[in-house]
Design a protein around this nucleic acid. Structure first.
Lengths: 338, 338
DNA sequence: TTGAAAGCGTTACCAG
DNA sequence: CTGGTAACGCTTTCAA
C-alpha cells in the first residue's frame, strides 16, 4: 500500500503538501493540487485510518449503542440504526456498533481506547447507570431517550408525553370519554425505559385535563398477553369506546381479539396506535397513528453529534413534535355509547 | 490520558515490557507483571487504538455490511447482526456497521483505509458486483450467502436447497402430492438474492425426485400480494393440499386469507414455513417450520473470520443442515383429498 | 527476563 | 504558497 510519502515523491512535493491537499486546510496552487491528485489516483493511495487517528486525535467514527436483544421493537431499532449510519456517512463518519449488553464497560472501552469521537446511545433507562460514566468521557454523547438526570448530555427523542396527549385529544374530539391504554410490556416498564414512562405520564395528565375516564395496563407479548390486558381494561372501566395502543407487538393480536369477540374497528372501538407508519398501514384496518419518527430522530442525533464535535452550541433537550395521521380506525362515537 | 510511557515510568520498567505484559507475547516475571498491572490500574491506562493499529497493522475491528433498507426480513437481519457483534466481542473484536447501499465503494473504503481486519457481508446477490472487489482486498471476507462464483471467498449459510427438500419430504411423508410454494417477493428474485434461488432450485429438484406435483410463485408483500399469489397457485394446480412458505412477511396475511376463505390449517391445508423459530410460534397456528439459524450462521461467520485472521484453514463453503421442527400446521392428508 | 530504539503513516507546527 | 520535521502512542526486532 502506498503511503503519503510515496505520493509526495511521485508528485515532487513534500508529504505535508499532500496532507494539505487532502484536508484542504491551507491554500494550494491549482497546479500543485492537480499533480498531487494525479499521483494519488495513479498510486491508489488511501490514508491509513490509524495513523490519521494517532496524529490528529480524530477517528471519524462514532459509536452506536443499540439494544440488540431479539426483544421488542426490532423494526424501530433497525430504523434508528439505518438513519444513524446513513447520516453519519453523509458527514464522512463511520459507525461502530455496540450492544447495550456491554453496559458501562462497553462505552468506556471504546471511548478510553480512542476508537470513536462520540457516542450515540439508544434505549435509555430512567436512571441509566451509563450516564455518570458518559459524563466522565472526553468524547461527547447524544442520547436517544430522556433519562431523569441528563444534565450536560444532549438528548433527542419523540415527545412521547405530547404524543399521548395528542392521541387522547384526537379521541376526545371524536366524542370518546372512556378510553383504555394498552401499554408496553411489563418488562419495558420494569426497565423504566424512558419513553414508556413519559408516555404514561402524558396520558394520565391529559386524561385529567380533558376530563376523560381512562384506564391503563401494560401488555405482555403474544395473543394471551393481549387477551389478559383487554380483560383487565374492560374490567376496570366498563364501556370502553376507544384504545390507545403504545405497543407495536400487541397491535396485530389485539385486532384479532377484537375481531374474534365481535367488536368492530372503528364502529365499536376506535384505536390510535403509536408506531412506525408502515406498521400502522400493514394492519387489516389502516390504523390512525402517531408515527415514531425513527429516521428523523436518528438523523437529528447524528447532526447533534456533529455540532458537538465542531464545538458548536446544541439544544440539550430536543423533543420532536408528534404528528397524528388519521386513517381508518377512529370514528365519532355512536349515540348508543354516550 | 496516560500513555504506555507513563505506565512504564510508574512501574519502573521499559515501555516494551508494558506492551508485553499487555499482549502476553513473551514471558514476564510474576513480580514485574504485578507492578505493571498495578501501574496500569492506578493510572487508568487504555492503549490507543489508532497507535496500536499503526504499529501492529491490526485494528481488531471487522466490518459488517448489512442491508439496511427498511425492507423485508428485518428481524432476521437483526439476529445476524446481534450474533456477529456478540461473537466478535468474544474474540475481542469490534464491529463497524456499513450499509449495503454503499456498495463496492464502501467495502473498498474501509478496507483500503485499514479501518478493519476483515469483512462480513450479508444479502449477497447471484452475481454480486462486490465480489471481484473483495478478491482484491488484502483483508479476508466471509459471505453470508452463496453467490455464483465465490472462488477463494468463504461462504456460510443455511443450506436452503436442503431446506426445500426437507420441507417437501416432510409433506410427502404425510401423504401430500400437490404442493404450492409461496416464495419471497419478486423484488428478492429480481435481485437474485442467493437464498431465494437456492431454495427454489432445491424445491424443483425435490419435487421431481419425490414425484410431486408442485407449483411455485413469488409473493408480493401485503394482504393483496398474498391473495393474488394464492389465486395463482390455486389456478395453476387444482387441489393443493399443502403449502411451503418461504416468505416471513406473507405468513400472517396468508393465515388470515386461509381462515377467511374457510380453509383450515392443518385440516384442509398443511403448511411448512421457513422462518425464525419465534416467528413460527407467534402465529395463530403454531407452524411446523424450518428455522433460519441466524444466530448460528452469524457466529460461524465470525469464527471463520477469526480462523482466516489466524492463518488457519477454513472450509470455503459451509452450509448448515436445516432442521425441521414439527408443530401444529401439518397433518396426514385426509382420504377425501387423495 | 528485560531494555533500547527503530519504525508504523499522518498531521500540524514552525520556517521560509 | 510550500517544505521540513517533530510529535502522536504503540509494537517489535535486536541486543543483552
Amino acid at each position: 500500500m502506498p503511503t503519503i510519502n510515496d505520493v509526495a515523491k511521485a508528485a515532487g512535493v513534500s508529504p505535508s503538501t499532500v496532507s494539505y491537499v487532502l484536508s484542504g486546510r491551507r491554500p494550494i496552487s491549482a497546479e500543485t493540487r492537480a499533480r498531487v491528485q494525479a499521483a494519488i489516483a495513479e498510486l491508489g493511495f488511501h490514508p491509513h485510518a490509524g495513523a490519521r487517528a494517532l496524529a490528529s486525535s480524530k477517528t471519524n467514527v462514532i459509536a452506536l449503542v443499540a439494544p440488540l436483544r431479539v426483544d421488542v421493537n426490532v423494526p424501530v431499532i433497525m430504523q434508528f440504526a439505518t438513519a444513524v449510519v446513513t447520516a453519519a456517512r453523509s458527514y464522512n463518519h463511520d459507525v461502530l456498533l455496540l450492544t447495550k449488553d456491554e453496559g458501562t464497560a462497553g462505552v468506556e472501552r471504546v471511548a478510553h481506547s480512542t476508537m470513536v469521537d462520540a457516542l450515540i446511545l439508544m434505549d435509555l433507562e430512567r436512571d441509566d447507570l451509563r450516564i455518570p460514566a458518559l459524563r466522565r468521557l472526553k468524547q461527547p454523547s447524544v442520547l436517544i431517550g430522556l433519562p431523569a438526570d441528563h444534565t450536560g448530555i444532549a438528548c433527542v427523542d419523540l415527545d412521547f408525553g405530547a404524543a399521548a396527549r395528542a392521541a387522547l385529544t384526537h379521541l376526545a374530539g371524536h366524542g370518546h370519554r372512556r378510553i383504555g391504554l394498552v401499554g408496553p410490556s411489563p418488562a419495558v416498564y420494569k426497565r423504566q425505559t424512558t419513553y414508556a414512562d413519559r408516555f404514561l405520564t402524558g396520558f394520565l395528565e391529559a386524561s385529567v385535563d380533558l376530563g376523560l375516564q381512562t384506564v391503563t395496563h401494560p401488555c405482555e407479548p403474544g395473543a394471551e398477553g393481549v387477551r389478559s390486558c383487554m380483560a383487565d381494561l374492560d374490567a376496570e372501566l366498563a364501556g370502553l369506546t376507544a384504545l390507545v395502543v403504545h405497543n407495536e407487538e400487541a397491535l396485530r393480536p389485539l385486532l384479532d381479539l377484537l375481531h374474534a369477540t365481535g367488536r368492530r374497528v372503528p364502529e365499536d372501538v376506535s384505536i390510535v396506535a403509536i408506531c412506525p407508519r408502515d406498521v400502522a398501514t400493514a394492519m387489516p384496518v389502516n390504523l390512525t397513528s402517531i408515527d415514531i419518527p425513527a429516521h428523523d430522530v436518528g438523523t437529528l442525533a447524528v447532526e447533534t453529534v456533529m455540532r458537538l464535535l465542531d464545538g458548536r452550541r446544541v439544544e440539550y433537550t430536543r423533543l420532536l413534535e408528534p404528528s397524528l395521521v388519521e386513517r381508518d380506525s377512529c370514528s365519532e362515537i355512536s349515540a348508543s355509547h354516550r
